[in-house]
């Protein structure tokens, strides 16, 4: 019974980790390659969720929502890069933080104007409402299982893309030494726009999958963004591999902490102390982990190589 519960909680942790990874991958690429702190990444997650939900509610087909939201958010991401962010690459991080924070306000208000402040109604697509048996005695919601599979597939595709293709080579080269890449005649501007748009699409993928289980409302992106920042700090800024490991670690630590810290503490501290210390400690756990990683490996677990 307990072993099965631990297994189920590990799946929950993996699922949360995968969601975080989809956000972290785009954010870490943008930070690592363009040296841009993009707080508005959560807004792209929100835009993806809204577009997919709107099309889903209108057409009744979740797939149609996905097929619309991904390219649309990619386009919006590229547009934002061309209009606003392009001017910020040479500025210091404070300017970038201020400008992208402004974008958060802009997107939140824009979404509230179009769809209102009330959370949108969404549901899990009817084909995925059931449960599947992952282990004898452990049934798991099919939709969440699909999230895990999609996330792992994206991780695999990203790995192949970044380490096995010409585009990936350019991305890695851009992360190491962008001046040299530009000097070799690569259109670094176009590369940046592409990477940013791609990151936006990944955020949208996270957002549209989150819609049916979380809620679709203005400001939804900021709730997850904080955890994502923890992920990329732990994983090492600029590293896809770091983002994957960081996301899974954060997802696991957070989930297992919430589930088992209190029972564990009550065996040593007694139930009363555990009742107050357990929840407080569980919500701090990922930040404690981040502090520990920063102390022992200030550049994260898998720092991107920089010249």
């Amino acid at each position: 019974m307990t072993a099965l519960l631990v297994a189920e909680q590990c799946l929950n942790g993996l699922q949360l980790g995968v969601m975080l990874f989809l956000m972290a991958a785009g954010l870490t690429l943008v930070f690592g390659i363009m040296n841009l702190v993009n707080l508005a990444h959560g807004s792209l997650y929100m835009v993806g969720a809204y577009l997919a939900t709107a099309v889903f509610n209108w057409s009744g087909s979740f797939l149609l929502g996905v097929l619309f939201a991904l390219p649309a958010t990619l386009a919006i991401g590229m547009l934002v890069e061309v209009i606003a962010l392009r001017r910020l690459y040479e500025r210091d991080h404070l300017d970038q933080v201020l400008a992208t924070f402004g974008l958060i306000l802009f997107f939140n208000e824009a979404v509230a104007i179009v769809w209102g402040r009330t959370a949108l109604f969404t549901r899990v697509p009817s084909a995925l409402t059931g449960h599947i048996m992952v282990l004898p005695g452990v049934s798991y919601p099919a939709y969440r299982a699909v999230i895990i599979l999609v996330g792992l597939a994206v991780a695999l595709v990203l790995y192949v893309l970044v380490s096995r293709t010409r585009l990936g080579m350019l991305i890695r080269a851009g992360a190491s030494n962008r001046t040299m890449v530009a000097a070799l005649g690569v259109n670094i501007r176009l590369l940046y726009t592409l990477v940013f748009g791609f990151g936006a699409a990944l955020a949208a993928l996270g957002g549209l999958m989150a819609g049916p289980i979380y809620n679709v409302q203005p400001g939804m992106g900021e709730e997850i963004l904080i955890q994502v920042l923890v992920v990329i700090v732990i994983g090492g800024i600029g590293s896809i591999r770091g983002a994957l490991v960081g996301a899974v670690v954060v997802g696991m630590v957070d989930t297992l902490g919430r589930a088992f810290l209190k029972p564990l503490l009550s065996t040593t501290l007694g139930p009363v102390a555990a009742q107050s210390a357990g929840p407080a400690l569980a919500s701090m756990l990922i930040y404690l982990l981040m502090a520990a990683v920063l102390f022992f490996r200030p550049r994260g677990l898998f720092p991107a190589v920089r010249s």
Partner: peptide, 12 residues
């Protein structure tokens, strides 16, 4: 059980 204020995922 007390959860974090503003928590999104309750699957655990």
């Amino acid at each position: 059980v007390y959860t974090k204020f503003g928590q999104q995922d309750y699957q655990a």
